[in-house]
Design a binder for these strands. Structure first.
Ligand SMILES: [Mn+2]
Ligand SMILES: [Mn+2]
Ligand SMILES: [Zn+2]
Ligand SMILES: [Zn+2]
Lengths: 143, 143
DNA sequence: TTCTTAATGCAAACGATTTGCAATTGCATT
DNA sequence: AATGCAATTGCAAATCGTTTGCATTAAGAA
């Protein structure tokens, strides 16, 4: 989620600094990612981008996602099912609850769980580089 | 893990009861899954099976994995990277720590984390159907 | 042993993602 | 503003893991 009224990171500046060109497709994709609250997949991003500039190709979407991921600007998620889904990396770490009926994604964060994970890894002699916690759920039935 | 000196579930009996035929390929794959401690992917299972009966096909491995998954006899994991990995479903629930350098998988279980997950889902109005907790780690450097 | 039908091997199809390549374009340079 | 060149693009073809159609084989009930 990125509408947390927090600072919008200036990726264009960062890209320029990295010697990466600011192209029309990249501007559009960046804008799409910045404007959304959800976790769209490449095809969804492609469609939203096509609405703005119909000449954009799916390949470019994929290439741009990879570029942005490498820059740390976005996170890639491999939730159950087909395609990878993306989200802007601004904001703090969080994990995801996925509604398996609607596909909705709800974000949450548990300091306690994060600490327990660290503890477990440490006891096993490891450092966590990254982790993934996904809760696949159904809306609770009344009563 | 299944070598926990616990009862070896009799899937052949269960399959017979379900009206599913006990074929030579299925016997072999079941034996492979029962004998291993790790989380092999379809290709690895195919290779181990081929060593026993070279006529087995990869398609049959995939079909059998799907059948066994449907029976609840195995779990399918989609760890980072290419192929799905499988493990016999005997034993209690556990989550995984993946050594990103070696690919090794270490199993762990945290009653506390499990409880916290439940609590989080409940507060959001959901019931957890299944979940996924994976810690991608590196061996801790000395000192 | 016979018979019916589920299960198999094979090759082709699949869906998501990546890649080779020729054409385009950002942008640093005049 | 015009130039030059490497980075980026669109397109089509390739890749990878997995699934599927179909003719053939083989469980296992009778
Ligand atoms: Mn998120
Ligand atoms: Mn396991
Ligand atoms: Zn987390
Ligand atoms: Zn768990």
């Amino acid at each position: 989620m990125n509408q947390h009224a927090n600072q919008k990171p200036d990726y264009e500046r960062e890209m320029r600094r990295a010697g990466v060109r600011i192209t029309r497709p990249r501007k559009i994709i960046l804008q799409i990612l910045g404007d959304t609250d959800d976790h769209p997949d490449a095809m969804e991003i492609f469609q939203r981008a096509s609405a703005i500039d119909s000449s954009i190709s799916l390949s470019t979407v994929y290439r741009t996602m990879k570029l942005l991921e490498g820059m740390g600007a976005i996170h890639r998620h491999a939730f159950d099912g087909g395609r990878a889904r993306f989200e802007q990396a601004s904001g703090e770490h969080h994990d995801h609850l996925i509604d398996i009926d609607t596909g909705d994604v709800i974000e949450f964060h548990s300091t306690k769980i994060e600490a327990l994970q660290e503890e477990i890894a440490r006891e096993l002699g490891y450092d966590i580089m990254h982790h993934r916690l996904e809760l696949y759920c159904r809306k609770r039935r009344k009563g």
